[in-house]
């Protein structure tokens, strides 16, 4: 082989990185308010400057000492919508669009209380809700929590459940 192993490895890595950047949808880069990409990953090591708890405590202050002194509480160890956007941008820039969409829904869900999330999940199980109930949940997601992506997802589910007879009161399809 004319190439040495190292040269070959380097060329493979370059090719991988090139294809990653080619695969990244142009819109994702434009949408990325954060400007964060796979090159900033892991954020916990490379970009601590941009990491904050939901109420704005810097990442480096989330320490045991600050827990003991009461300066930091359990609630501060939560992901913020901004960080989910950044992780979505990282996933997009690595060509993983579905993960970015998942994080988009997750971003909206950070505003929904634990209990309500579990209730909505249960309402989305088969034969649990009427179409009206599902559309009601979609409206609540949109109007009360500003969760437009989640709302659209639930509306889509309502249509599919209707077509496949998976609403409350429907008999099983076969």
């Amino acid at each position: 082989m004319a190439q040495t192993n190292e040269e070959f490895v380097a060329s493979v890595v370059r090719q991988v990185l090139k294809e990653i950047s080619v695969e990244a949808p142009a819109s994702a880069a434009a949408k990325s308010a954060s400007g964060i990409t796979a090159a900033d990953y892991p954020l916990g090591m490379k970009r601590r400057d941009v990491l904050k708890s939901p109420r704005g405590i810097p990442f480096d202050e989330l320490t045991l000492e600050n827990v003991e002194s009461g300066k930091v509480a359990f609630e501060d160890f939560s992901i913020s919508p901004d960080v989910l956007s950044m992780q979505g941008d990282i996933a997009s820039s690595a060509g993983r669009t579905q993960i970015a969409l998942n994080f988009n829904r997750a971003r909206e869900m950070t505003k929904i209380p634990d209990e309500r999330i579990l209730e909505i999940y249960n309402s989305l199980r088969p034969h649990r809700s009427t179409k009206e109930e599902m559309l009601g949940i979609a409206d609540e997601l949109q109007n009360k929590f500003g969760a437009a992506v989640c709302a659209e997802f639930v509306r889509e589910a309502a249509d599919v459940y209707q077509r496949r007879k998976l609403l409350k009161g429907d008999l099983p399809t076969d």
Partner: peptide, 9 residues
């Protein structure tokens, strides 16, 4: 949980 890095693949 705050950094979210382990949410990636």
């Amino acid at each position: 949980r705050v950094a979210g890095d382990y949410l990636q693949t």
